[in-house]
Design a protein around this nucleic acid. Sequence first.
DNA 1: ATAATCAACGAAATCGATTGCATTATATTA
DNA 2: TAATATAATGCAATCGATTTCGTTGATTAT
Lengths: 345, 345
Amino acid sequence: MNHKKEITIYDIAKKLGYSPSTVSRALNNSGSISAKTVKLIREESDKMGYRPNTIAASLRNSKSKTIGILIARINRPFIAELISGIEERARKAGYNVIISQSNDSYENEVGNAKALYDSRIMGLIASLSMETTDYRHFDQFVAQGIPIVFVDRVPKGFPSYQVIIDNYAAGYKATKHLLEQGCTRIAHFAGAQHRNVYEERRKGYEDALREFGIPVEEDLIVVCDTLSFEEGRKVTKRLLRMENPPDGIFSANDTAAVSAIMYAKKNGVRVPQDLAIIGFNDDPMAAIVDPGLSTVTHPATKMGKIAAQRILDHSETAQDDEVTEMTILNTELLIRDSSRKKELS
Amino acid sequence: MNHKKEITIYDIAKKLGYSPSTVSRALNNSGSISAKTVKLIREESDKMGYRPNTIAASLRNSKSKTIGILIARINRPFIAELISGIEERARKAGYNVIISQSNDSYENEVGNAKALYDSRIMGLIASLSMETTDYRHFDQFVAQGIPIVFVDRVPKGFPSYQVIIDNYAAGYKATKHLLEQGCTRIAHFAGAQHRNVYEERRKGYEDALREFGIPVEEDLIVVCDTLSFEEGRKVTKRLLRMENPPDGIFSANDTAAVSAIMYAKKNGVRVPQDLAIIGFNDDPMAAIVDPGLSTVTHPATKMGKIAAQRILDHSETAQDDEVTEMTILNTELLIRDSSRKKELS
DNA sequence: ATAATCAACGAAATCGATTGCATTATATTA
DNA sequence: TAATATAATGCAATCGATTTCGTTGATTAT
């Protein structure tokens, strides 16, 4: 009940006979204050248990040491890792991180963007919702000179910082791997094609096929809404009932891929002998399923750290609304048994 | 570059010929302002695109509409779900959520607590790090009348709000289930015993054994540091090499339990026939491993929502530093094949 | 008709840190 | 020695919303 009164620079000033200005400067190493005074003020402020009121400073500077995160869902392994990386990097620099999830709804994303904007964040790190195709809710940040770093799911034609992986190369590598294992009819579980990550992965898939002289069959490309476990099951079922079923699947995520493995096994289709499968993300479950799911690894934590660093490094002057600066990270194939058709056949 | 100037209540006041006070009151429905004026001001503020400056309000009221989260690691399924629940509930109420992770380090936890405190959060939701045994870094919140809700990993003897599951009952149920399946030598993968969740689960385990007239053997209780995949493997290996190995394992988390299943399978031990296993948490991987891992379900998202609601409901007046208010949620056994010893033998 | 009441609104202080513009005192230079 | 630079510090405005205490005019009660 007896809320301890917080001490301010005024208290310190009064006690020491200095002015608040001097105390402020001493604590921030700004202006010219004698070393002796600085030491004195620092010591007294420690002794009195002074805590800077960041809110007051934020008001004065009209900016808070806060980074906003705008993502679809927190409870996804990739996103949780990403946030972890952002948080770690940001906190080291004395920044707070505030999160908001859109649950893949465009409407929520717009609302959350407003809320973050109103919170006077210093920078925004965003990964688009599945639905988003209009990016005007990000204009307010640009107009205010607030840097935006898009991660993974990035917008097209919106100048910004971007931290992504080489989805095309990854799709290509994954598909090529299946081809090298002897697959000749490879299906692809794709995601919404307006989302860069899924479009690029698909392109890589198609180009790999072409390179091996295999025609791209639209029947084998399934554009999924959610790439959920349930959807993976349904799609696998349908594919396996084709008169000429596929002998390989490249799934744009691990969830659907794991689902495919489990459905195939349960229905007497051998993985990888009859059906080789490779996923994307290296979710924890990829190592657990039997056979182990081959997949593409995402350096999620690193991406988070890089994104946070982008915000921290961003200088007011260095900005240019017209330019996109991308950081493209490499992926790696992680081959487990679900695609080792050659060796295991 | 041309940072759009934000409009303030002063701009609205000037334009309409009212005073800032009136504008403020009209927008907040406080004080007595004629309905006509309110409407006028509301409309004009919309037209001008007014955004309240929450920082200024925070400074004036010395409180921000922000909830702080202090957890060990974001990238754990349970925690990610928890945060998701908190965020969802908080955002609906117009609150921001700022997160910090200690990586299970006491030192980091103390530092993060300070940082959150300095951010003038309205309430704190915390789940203790594995190392924490001293709770004095939470005193500052109490002294300031800031409510704390501990979730899952809660402190002993620290009056606060607490949202937990009935760990004792869960441990009891899980062990009893194994006993009913015919297990007679049940090992327990325990966690740090100063952490309530692990201590309670162990107590439930021991009482179930006693009830079935089975002596508690210290050899079969393995107190693990991290309950990691690697640790699960090592411990399982050791247990299976005993001259009289266990025929059941109750693991305090799923990670170690899954690891046990995989190690056992790889070494010719049949699960559940030779070794029945049950875990805790219902992590996604529990449904993926073969055989499916029986486990105890945690209502994680719900816990997050309840915790957030506690903060939102907390009234300055209703507080009492001396009282702990717990919300204890039920768990449920989710029986998959890893423990169906009776039917499958 | 006059005092009392009330609705509607304004003036100005306040929250705590920051900072441009002085001011003072000391040191340096011509 | 006078003039000027320079170091060290103070004053006061500022950031934007909130709120206490008035003030004004109209309405009601006596």
